[in-house]
Computed example of a mutant assay.
Amino acid sequence: MGLQYEDIGRRLKAFRLASGLSADEIAQRIGISRTALYRFEKGELAKIETLEKLSELLDVSMPTLLGVGMEYMPSAVSYFERTRQLEEKADQIIVLAGPISFLLASDQFEVALEQVLRESVPDDAPRRDRTLADVDAIMEILHARKQTYKRRRPSIVNLMSSVQIEKFLTNGLIGRRPLTESKRAKRLEIARQEIEHFATLIEENSMGVQIGVVCDTLPHNGFQIFRENGKRTITISPFRLGEDPNIRVGVAMATSAPEAIALHENIVNEAWRTALKGEAAAKYLRNLLDQHKAETSAVPAPRRRARAG
């Protein structure tokens, strides 16, 4: 599909208004008339050299200005495969995705995950057979991701949400509700073991692994930033593993647009600044575990009916 010049003009006007510069100032700085600038904003074709000057002046990348450069992935399979490809070459990975990061999760988590993802597909879901087949593909990709990480060991910065961790401990690793009491108990135990695993990771202080527990609000949609030899790519995804998994609905995106990277890095920097780290983070997780164990043990067992006789 060709470029939509009217849409380019609308984006140009929006960025001009946001810049705080007048039309006269912008026109003068890039060597065109104000009338020409207004024509561009109405959708007339501009030379690529002029658009490049406007892009630099307004501090917006050419891909964003032109409406190209964003990669859309409407399938969990394509998103996780794309993630695998990026991880395969990344020197550093910054992760903000759910209560836990899959790459740092335990091997036991991966084993339990397949059943949970299958459970997350409703019986009346459209194209249910296709989605269940996707689970096989997703698990294969996830396994390859984990093996690649173990082999390459890129640096990882993982931000965990305290709110999501508490929900994870309360609800357990589940794909649907309700579950039988015995199954729910097992899923609660898996969640506890996983948070225990992350507390241990923090205490081990392994080289190349930095984990922060964020007690402030974090974006609902997860994102990851991949750095490779100065090149940076960000993926933003509604697809989730773990607590309340989602492999069916949503559109993930990937881009290398500088302003998208910068805006999300600002989120990471601010979250990391206030996050619990090191001993404080491990202590926080272990206190949560003790609290949930105490609450569970305090729940009275179901009363048994007396036998007749």
Rank of each mutant, 00 (worst) to 15 (best):
108 Q>E: 12
109 F>N: 07
109 F>I: 14
109 F>W: 14
109 F>E: 13
110 E>T: 09
110 E>K: 14
110 E>A: 14
111 V>Y: 05
111 V>F: 05
112 A>L: 15
117 L>W: 06
118 R>I: 09
119 E>Y: 05
120 S>P: 00
120 S>T: 03
120 S>W: 07
120 S>V: 02
120 S>H: 05
121 V>I: 14
123 D>N: 03
124 D>R: 05
124 D>H: 03
124 D>K: 03
125 A>W: 09
125 A>K: 06
126 P>E: 01
127 R>E: 13
130 R>K: 05
131 T>Y: 07
131 T>E: 15
131 T>W: 04
132 L>P: 01
132 L>G: 04
132 L>R: 00
133 A>V: 03
133 A>W: 02
133 A>K: 04
134 D>K: 01
135 V>A: 03
136 D>F: 03
136 D>P: 01
137 A>F: 03
137 A>Q: 15
138 I>V: 15
139 M>K: 14
139 M>N: 13
141 I>M: 05
141 I>D: 00
142 L>R: 15
142 L>G: 12
143 H>S: 11
144 A>Q: 13
146 K>P: 00
146 K>S: 10
147 Q>P: 01
147 Q>T: 12
150 K>N: 13
150 K>G: 12
151 R>L: 11
152 R>P: 00
153 R>V: 10
153 R>C: 08
154 P>F: 02
156 I>N: 07
156 I>P: 00
157 V>T: 14
158 N>W: 06
158 N>H: 11
159 L>S: 02
159 L>A: 03
160 M>C: 04
161 S>L: 10
161 S>I: 08
162 S>Q: 12
162 S>K: 08
164 Q>Y: 14
166 E>G: 01
166 E>H: 08
170 T>C: 02
170 T>L: 13
172 G>I: 02
173 L>F: 07
174 I>W: 01
174 I>Y: 01
174 I>T: 05
175 G>N: 05
176 R>K: 09
176 R>T: 03
177 R>V: 02
177 R>L: 07
178 P>D: 06
180 T>Y: 01
181 E>H: 04
181 E>D: 11
182 S>M: 07
183 K>A: 01
183 K>T: 07
183 K>Y: 02
184 R>L: 15
185 A>R: 15
186 K>S: 04
186 K>E: 06
187 R>H: 08
187 R>L: 04
187 R>F: 05
188 L>W: 06
189 E>K: 15
191 A>D: 09
191 A>M: 12
192 R>M: 06
192 R>V: 00
192 R>L: 02
193 Q>F: 09
194 E>G: 05
195 I>K: 05
195 I>F: 02
196 E>C: 07
197 H>Q: 12
197 H>S: 09
197 H>C: 09
199 A>Y: 10
200 T>N: 06
200 T>Q: 10
201 L>V: 06
201 L>I: 05
205 N>Y: 00
205 N>A: 04
206 S>T: 09
208 G>H: 08
211 I>R: 08
211 I>W: 07
212 G>Q: 07
212 G>M: 10
213 V>E: 09
214 V>W: 13
215 C>R: 07
215 C>I: 02
216 D>E: 13
218 L>K: 10
221 N>L: 10
222 G>E: 13
223 F>P: 00
223 F>V: 09
